[in-house]
């Protein structure tokens, strides 16, 4: 029983990480039709900025309020990079989908290489508060606190995103834009402002995932974002493009499946099963669990 609960909670921790990356990807794709390969870069920037801030920023540290400050700095850095990428690189290629994808591909290659050039290819130990290294006993299972922190953060982000999308004017514009972008434009609303906003939200969520993922794994390395990104893509496709709630469901399904199969089967089989799930969903329901039809 304890094992099942432990696996469930660590699976949910993984799901939280996937959700943080996938929610931004899904919104960006749903609204702007940009498949953002540079999303892993935002994650890397968030992780490295938090790591840097904990050691160098006055007032920030690896414990208590200082750590919160470091994470805030990391998220701000990720947001800033995301906004800059949208304004400088994506916006001039408005509505040329393939070129936008190509630019984000180039950016992901160059950006990761830049991180590697600056801080080296090896994983660095991540500064984390002492309590995240400990475990909490829940129903007989010893659950690492870092995973619980991720779950709480993801639930908060999910709640905040849904509230934002439901009750604010910009949320309305974004929801309408995912549904039918031409109509929103025709009504005289500058939908490109919403693009920037969505990039900022996605960048912030990915940077948070980077920072908290660093806490969870205990290290930070340039390639981290890339490997997470592929599973985030799978989550986006399963959940349905442009649907935050769909991403949340899909993230939970993928995280739990991966964790359980990897534990009970040979290591790595869980990752294969996730792709199998993707194939099944695509064959039975190409538009994903929720959201619009998954076409370009």
């Amino acid at each position: 029983m304890g094992t099942v609960i432990l696996l469930t909670l660590t699976g949910l921790g993984l799901a939280a990480l996937y959700f943080l990356v996938a929610s931004g990807l899904s919104l960006v794709f749903g609204l702007a039709d940009v498949l953002n390969f540079a999303h892993g870069l935002f994650l890397g920037v968030g992780a490295y900025a938090t790591w840097w801030a904990a050691a160098n920023l006055p007032g920030a540290g690896s414990d208590g309020f200082g750590f919160v400050l470091a994470v805030v700095f990391g998220v701000a850095a990720g947001t800033l990079v995301a906004v800059l990428v949208e304004l400088v690189l994506i916006r001039p290629l408005y509505s040329r989908t393939i070129e936008q994808v190509l630019v984000t591909v180039g950016l992901s290659l160059a950006g990761v290489a830049l991180l590697q050039a600056t801080w080296g290819a090896d994983a660095r130990p991540f500064p984390r508060p002492d309590w995240t290294r400990q475990v909490t006993g829940i129903l007989g299972a010893q659950v690492p606190n870092g995973g619980l922190l991720l779950i709480i953060a993801a639930v908060l982000v999910l709640g905040a995103l849904l509230a934002f999308l439901r009750w604010t004017r910009y949320g309305l514009v974004i929801r309408a834009g995912v549904e039918n972008r031409e109509m929103v434009t025709a009504l005289g609303i500058d939908v490109r402002k919403a693009f920037t906003l969505v990039f900022a939200i996605g960048g912030a969520a990915a940077a948070l995932a980077g920072a908290l993922g660093g806490v969870y794994f205990g290290t930070v390395s340039p390639g981290q974002g890339g490997s997470l990104l592929i599973f985030a893509f799978i989550v986006v496709v399963i959940g349905g493009m442009g649907s935050v709630v769909g991403s949340a469901y899909a993230a939970v399904a993928v995280g739990l499946l991966q964790q359980f199969v990897n534990y009970y089967g040979p290591s790595g089989l869980g990752d294969v099963c996730v792709v199998g799930l993707l194939a099944v969903v695509l064959l039975l329901r190409p538009q994903g669990i929720a959201g619009k039809v998954a076409t370009a």
Binding site: F29, I230, V237, G268, D271, V275, A296
Partner: peptide
């Protein structure tokens, strides 16, 4: 190929990832 456009890109990416996992594990 049951999907088109960007979804196709993601699915092929996922299949290739399985190959990478199979080789690495």
């Amino acid at each position: 190929l049951r999907t088109v456009g960007i979804a196709f890109a993601m699915v092929t990416l996922a299949f290739a990832q399985v190959g990478a996992i199979l080789v690495a594990r």
